[in-house]
Simulated assay, not measured.
Amino acid sequence: MKSVSRRQFVGGAAGVVASLSLPIRAWAASSPFKIAVISDEISQDFDHACSVIAKDFGLHYVELREMWGKNLQASSDAEIAEAQKILAKYDLQVTDIASPLFKVDWPGAPKSQYGSKGDMHGAQEVAYKQQDEVLARSISLAKQFKTDKIRCFDFWRLDDVAPYRAAINEKLRATADIVGQQGLLLVIENEFACNTATGREAAKVLNAIQSPHFALNWDAGNAVMRGELDAFPAGWDALPKNRIHHCHCKNAIKDASGKIVWSPVDKGYVDWTAQFRALKQAGYRDAVSLETHWRGAATPEASTRISWDGMKQALINSGTF
Rank of each mutant, 00 (worst) to 15 (best):
K129H: 10
H245G: 07
A220L: 14
D105Q: 03
R7L: 02
H293R: 15
Q8A: 05
D309Y: 12
N251A: 11
E228C: 09
P23G: 01
D230I: 06
L185D: 12
G108H: 14
A29L: 03
A14H: 01
R157M: 12
G11P: 03
V261L: 04
F153H: 11
V62S: 07
D132I: 04
E66M: 15
G108S: 13
A220I: 12
T196S: 09
G58F: 03
D160F: 08
L216A: 13
E228V: 00
E228K: 06
G296D: 11
A74R: 10
A142P: 10
P100K: 07
A162P: 08
N217Y: 03
D105C: 02
K117E: 02
V187H: 10
D96N: 03
L72Q: 03
G199I: 14
V179Y: 01
D230K: 14
K55R: 15
G115L: 01
Q281N: 15
Y90H: 03
N190Y: 10
P100L: 04
V205D: 03
C152W: 05
G221Q: 07
V17R: 00
L239E: 13
W294E: 03
T292C: 10
R173S: 15
C247L: 03
A256D: 05
V126Q: 02
Q210K: 15
K312C: 13
I35R: 00
I139A: 04
Q44G: 09
F46L: 09
S318L: 11
T147W: 00
G183I: 13
Y269C: 04
M311Y: 14
V288N: 05
T299H: 07
S5D: 08
F192V: 06
M225S: 09
E301T: 12
I209P: 11
K85V: 01
A203K: 13
A13S: 08
L229W: 04
S112H: 01
Q281T: 15
S76F: 03
G15H: 00
W272M: 05
S31P: 14
A81N: 03
K280D: 08
S51C: 04
F276H: 13
I97D: 08
L184H: 09
L315W: 05
H246L: 06
A74S: 14
A215C: 14
S138I: 05
R65L: 02
L186M: 15
K250H: 11
F192E: 08
K149S: 13
A13C: 02
L185A: 10
Q181D: 12
